[in-house]
Amino acid sequence: METIAVVDYNLGNLHSVSKAVEHVAPDARVLVTDDHAQIAQADRVVFPGQGAARDCMKAISDHHVEAAVREAAEVKPFLGICMGLQVLMEYSDENGGTPLLDLFPGQVRHFARGRVDDNGVPLKIPHMGWSQVNQAIDHPMWQGIDDQSRFYFVHSYYIVPDDKSIVAATTDYIDPFACAIASDNLFAVQFHPEKSADAGLQLLKNFVNWKP
């Protein structure tokens, strides 16, 4: 039986994520855990997160999961969700600059304020709701998902990776931004697949079946 670890550092939407993974992987063992050994022994790792970057990094430190996350991101199928994408960058603009995990060169920026849509209506921050995801590359994680399918977002910051070749999808809100990255065994998304109906469940199913 395959084991899927959902990393628990008390800042992710753990219940919804784990239940969604269980739904698409009924034959797998899904563990919500902060235990380094269990994460290391798992066949696949899901790294969710939400909230502020500084709080997220503190929680990662307090739960002693940084080393386990780094190892998993290097050697096994790894899915980052929301803040689980952002903290893979070097640093965030939040609070004048918050160091992150630095797995990929790049930064996390706050959406520009004062912008309006085509009808002159102010664009709200955080970006919250359903938005089209424009697939930038052909990838097994997009299998069975139409380009420009809508996914559910809740965030005020977005990633700006230095290496544009890792961008797997973009979304337009205020400005176009990278909403998914892919590199070898790692895939990470800004949106919440566990809240994104059929498209989100398909992405999670693709992750369960992905053999990078």
Rank of each mutant, 00 (worst) to 15 (best):
P77K: 12
D118Y: 08
S18C: 12
R115W: 13
A67C: 03
Q50L: 08
G51A: 06
V87A: 04
R70I: 11
A42D: 06
I60V: 15
A67S: 15
V69I: 15
P77Q: 09
G97H: 13
E94N: 11
A42E: 05
H127P: 11
V32F: 00
D93A: 14
G49Q: 09
P99C: 10
D118A: 15
L79P: 05
V24M: 11
F78A: 01
V108E: 02
P48H: 01
L100I: 08
A25P: 09
L101F: 01
R109Y: 02
K76Q: 10
V69S: 02
G106S: 09
A42R: 07
D93I: 00
G80M: 08
D62A: 12
S18V: 04
L88S: 00
A73G: 10
L100R: 06
G106E: 09
G51S: 08
C56M: 04
A40I: 07
A28C: 13
V32T: 14
S18R: 10
A20K: 03
H110T: 01
I81W: 04
L85K: 05
G51H: 13
A52V: 10
C82G: 05
V46C: 07
V121N: 15
A20H: 02
G51P: 09
E22R: 03
L31C: 08
R44T: 01
H36K: 14
V46D: 02
R44G: 01
D118H: 13
R109M: 11
A68Y: 03
R115T: 14
A72Y: 06
V87E: 02
L31Q: 12
R113A: 14
G114S: 08
E66T: 07
G84H: 06
E74I: 00
V45D: 01
C56S: 11
V75Y: 10
V46G: 04
K58L: 12
S61L: 11
R70S: 02
G51W: 09
R29Y: 04
G97Y: 13
V24G: 04
D117S: 07
V75Q: 14
V32M: 10
L85T: 04
G80Y: 03
H127L: 10
H23W: 13
V65P: 02
K76Y: 04
R115Y: 08
R29M: 11
